[in-house]
């Protein structure tokens, strides 16, 4: 694949870094190891992460913790209906001293951008994020500004339709590598949270555990993970099946297949493997594919079908139906 030739880390170093990040985030997010691991997977796969859940379960906390464990530039944008595109990308202002227009960089110029309640902004503003997320660049007044690498958007949104919210356009949903949800904590975790948050915000105690350059090395290592023809065929077969399925109106895009394989590489690396297993694909299929697909005959609530199956159910069924190719690697 697109493996760079340098920047790869030895296995143990990679592992240590990953462990450190997971442990660090887990101090603020109690009992949500799976969500944390998924977030890390997306981070290492250089994808954008969408965290969707009801208010108050720690979406923003996860986003901020993730940003804070990496010693990088972080910006946070609270999306509101009156937010304008320029509020994200930046504006050109006239400098009286130099008598020139000067570009004032918006919050998007950061390694990690946290977009809080992203579905509260108008479609116009939301689409301003589009170019940034897809191209890692910003164009203002005809000038294109490259964003720093890595550039990762971690957005949160509420699933419940509320006044003053705009559903995320399909095109933008497709640019998120994965959508995760937090879920309510169990009783023990909730109790532990009560005690630890009484005095201080635990977020304040978080210190970065990896630098930006180390993050780049981690990402480079992930890129070198081997994907066999069999696994590629498997991912493609799943994507194709979502497009043919009766219960689905819009299936997974080719970009979705690409994201699926990239995320699988990150998952394999975190698992300590230098090759992807079909199991990686299976494990990530719902997380990576569900938010981009549109069910047929949906009732308004996009996650539920008339048949009572959610898109996640459909994906799980497809994954179970597609046979796993087991044949010798192409090498």
């Amino acid at each position: 694949m697109d493996a760079p030739t340098s920047g790869s880390l030895p296995d143990d170093v990679f592992h240590d870094h990953c462990d450190a990040i997971v442990r660090s985030i887990s101090t603020v997010i109690d009992g949500k190891t799976e969500a944390v691991r998924l977030a890390l997977t997306v981070l290492l796969a250089e994808g954008h992460l969408l965290i969707e859940d009801v208010p108050g379960v720690g979406k923003t906390m996860l986003a901020r913790a993730l940003a804070r464990t990496v010693d990088s530039t972080v910006s946070r944008v609270q999306f509101t209906p009156d937010l304008l595109p320029a509020d994200i990308t930046g504006v050109s202002v006239y400098n009286q001293n130099t008598r020139e227009f000067e570009f004032k960089k918006g919050p998007v110029f950061a390694n990690i951008v946290i977009g809080d309640e992203i579905n509260r902004a108008s479609p116009k503003t939301q689409s301003a994020l589009l170019e940034c997320m897809a191209e890692s660049s910003v164009t203002v007044d005809g000038t294109t500004y490259e964003l720093e690498s890595p550039f990762i958007v971690v957005a949160t949104q509420n699933p419940i339709e509320m006044e003053g919210t705009y559903p995320l356009p399909e095109a933008q949903r497709d640019r998120f590598m994965a959508r995760i949800s937090m879920g309510y904590p169990d009783a023990a975790a909730e109790l532990a949270m009560l005690r630890s948050r009484e005095l201080t915000s635990p977020l304040d105690a978080l210190t970065p555990v990896v630098s930006v350059s180390q993050l780049r090395e981690l990402i480079a290592t992930v890129r070198r993970v081997f994907v066999s023809t069999a696994v590629e065929e498997y991912a493609v077969a799943i994507a194709q099946a979502t497009r043919r399925d009766r219960e689905v109106r819009v299936g997974a895009s080719p970009r979705a297949t690409l994201h699926l394989v990239r995320a699988a590489k990150a998952r394999a690396a975190i698992d300590g493997r230098d090759f992807v297993l079909p199991d990686d694909i299976d494990a990530l299929a719902v997380t990576v594919l569900a938010h981009r697909m549109i069910p047929a005959r949906h009732t308004g609530d996009t996650s539920a079908l008339l048949s009572g199956h959610s898109i996640a159910d459909v994906i799980e069924r497809i994954v179970a139906e597609i046979p796993v190719p087991v044949h010798a690697a192409a090498s």
């Binding site: 297993l277 079909p278 199991d279 299976d282 179970a320 139906e321 597609i322 046979p323 796993v324 190719p325 087991v326 044949h327 010798a328």
Partner: peptide
């Protein structure tokens, strides 16, 4: 002749023949 996939297919089919509820479409690890 070095085709390891055949080994797993044989194990899988033998398990199915013996009545184990193994899905033929699942991954080897599952």
């Amino acid at each position: 002749q070095g085709e390891t996939g055949a080994a797993w297919r044989e194990v899988r089919d033998t398990a199915i023949d013996l009545g184990y509820p193994v899905s033929a479409t699942a991954t080897p690890r599952q």
